[in-house]
């Protein structure tokens, strides 16, 4: 049985808080680039971007992009071939900018490692930050999120499901036993 840990309103609140924290730490929206990691990270990035533009009228219109990390993964050989997804960098590029990476769940850290490599091939940002909706622990690399929606200690047997209305039709974060584990 899945247990709901974040409801629709919790998600909205968490994203609003993260948006404020980003602006706070960057001291405004200047030279800010938000890059979502497909698939759900892109949606979260777009929502954060929209919030930031609401809060800071002077924020650039082309603030949000997407960063596909498929080609940079270290586990490609362990899965069937993945179709890569779109990478789109805002018109101003990332050189000298503060890039905030956005993903839904932070787990081993390997996706973020791949994202850092991908960013390195796109340009040289002034700084890279990380925002995630859920941090579930179990890091395998020295990586830490700067902005976290919710810390969710979990067992490796469990699965965290993030559902967002744009693609999943509903809006919640739930936790359940991974298929195949247990009984």
């Amino acid at each position: 049985m899945a247990r709901i840990v974040l409801q629709n309103s919790d998600i909205t609140r968490a994203l609003t808080r993260i948006s404020h924290e980003i602006l706070e730490s960057n001291r405004g929206a200047d030279d800010l680039v938000i890059l979502g990691i497909p698939t759900r990270g892109v949606i979260l990035a777009e929502r954060i971007g929209a919030q930031i533009r609401q809060i800071e009228a002077s924020a650039p219109v082309d603030l949000v992009g997407s960063l596909d990390v498929t080609m940079y993964r270290d586990d490609l050989a362990h899965h069937p071939t993945r179709a890569p997804q779109r990478t789109r960098v805002p018109a101003g590029g990332i050189d000298g900018k503060t890039v905030v990476l956005v993903d839904d769940v932070l787990y081993s850290g390997r996706t973020i490692r791949a994202a850092l490599d991908a960013i390195g091939d796109l340009g040289r940002p002034r700084a890279v930050r990380l925002a995630v909706l859920v941090d579930r622990g179990h890091r395998e690399l020295p990586i830490r999120a700067d902005f976290v929606g919710k810390n969710l200690p979990s067992s490796t047997d469990e699965r965290i499901n993030v559902r967002l209305s744009e693609i999943d039709g509903s809006e919640e974060v739930s936790i359940d036993l991974a298929t195949g584990a247990g009984a």
Partner: peptide, 12 residues
């Protein structure tokens, strides 16, 4: 080359 060589060959 990406499609043929990147994934797990067994799985295909």
């Amino acid at each position: 080359l990406y499609s043929l060589l990147s994934g797990d060959r067994e799985a295909r």
